[in-house]
Simulated scan of single mutants.
Amino acid sequence: MTYCVAMRLDAGLVFLSDSRTNAGVDHIGTFRKMTVFETPGDRMMVLMTAGNLSISQSVRQIVAEHVTSNGKSIWNAATMYEAAQIVGEVIRLVRERDADSLEQFGIDFNVSMIFGGQIKGERCRLFQMYSAGNFIESHDENTYFQIGESKYGKPIIDRVVTLATPLDEAAKCALISMDSTLRSNISVGLPLDLLIYESNTLAVTRFVTIDEGNQYFQMIRQTWGKQLKAVFESINDPVWNAAPDAHSNVLSSVSSKSQPVRIAPPPTFGIDATPPGPLQTLAQDDANGKQH
């Protein structure tokens, strides 16, 4: 498995990918998931992949060489949208070639990709590609895409990143998102590839491969964990069965009539399952014919 995230911001683009493909007690595979297609001064495009490795590697290679029936390639496409269409066409070509053979061995045609960048004359654009070759584009309401093991790293991005977020701050958020994923899922692993693209530079100017020895990423891992724990400990514990006039940290009050769903034991067991204490309220109300 893998985790990749990309963000489209007013200032440019952020791309981050891990490099793990298999995880187990005796087998861990490492393959880089980020590929750059670049003609400095004219275009800079990034492709990140998740899913079946043989499929994604085939797509990556063919994308670099493919020419459509009307003579278009990613190297001369007029817009990023046109380039994304070419990537989608390549995914369909690989599917037509390999899907049936894979199916005979019980393997699904499974691949997902993030494709983004900038072509001279237009703004930065970002797309999420699917196994069918179709895609969606990032707009102002959705500033980022994730593929792979996305759930662990999503909350921090949702809370922090907006279109106006500076590139370095977005990179920091992406690394925290990745750290959260690394901690919770063994199928995601180092090293990481991080690329920061500033709008209109039309070339890669900031890129780093991050391993266990990277000082900044180690600082992120240590500081984020400590700060999370400190914030957690600063939040008061809930108050149960609070007095009616209580207003702070009340989770339940003495007047609360909340009840769990209960299943009583069959009478043949001879067990008295009458709820104890304050939780009797609803049962007593029912016995008295009250409504709740």
Rank of each mutant, 00 (worst) to 15 (best):
G116H: 07
G117S: 00
Q118H: 08
I119G: 05
G121P: 07
G121E: 04
G121Q: 15
G121W: 08
E122W: 14
M129I: 08
M129Y: 09
S131N: 13
A132P: 11
G133N: 03
G133W: 02
G133F: 02
F135T: 06
E137Y: 00
H139L: 10
D140Q: 05
E141H: 11
E141F: 07
N142D: 11
N142E: 12
T143Q: 04
Y144H: 07
Y144D: 06
F145D: 02
I147N: 04
I147S: 05
I147M: 05
G148F: 04
E149Q: 09
S150Q: 09
K151Q: 13
K151R: 07
Y152D: 06
Y152C: 12
Y152T: 01
P155R: 03
I157R: 07
V160C: 11
T162W: 15
L163K: 10
A164D: 11
A164F: 08
T165P: 00
P166I: 02
L167S: 14
L167R: 14
D168Q: 12
E169D: 07
A170C: 11
A170G: 15
A171N: 08
K172M: 12
L175W: 01
I176A: 08
S177N: 06
M178F: 01
D179S: 10
D179A: 09
S180E: 15
T181R: 01
T181E: 03
R183V: 02
R183W: 04
S184V: 00
I186A: 12
I186S: 09
S187W: 02
S187A: 07
S187Y: 00
V188W: 05
V188M: 00
G189H: 00
G189R: 02
P191F: 00
L192H: 01
D193A: 11
D193N: 08
L194C: 03
L195S: 14
L195T: 09
I196R: 04
Y197F: 13
E198G: 05
E198N: 13
L202V: 08
A203E: 11
V204L: 06
T205S: 10
F207C: 12
F207T: 07
V208T: 12
T209A: 12
I210A: 04
D211I: 02
E212C: 12
G213F: 14
G213H: 11
G213Q: 14
Q215S: 10
Q215R: 14
Q215A: 11
Q215N: 12
Q215E: 15
Y216P: 00
F217I: 03
Q218D: 10
I220R: 00
I220V: 13
Q222Y: 01
G225Q: 10
G225F: 05
K226Q: 06
L228W: 07
L228R: 09
K229Q: 05
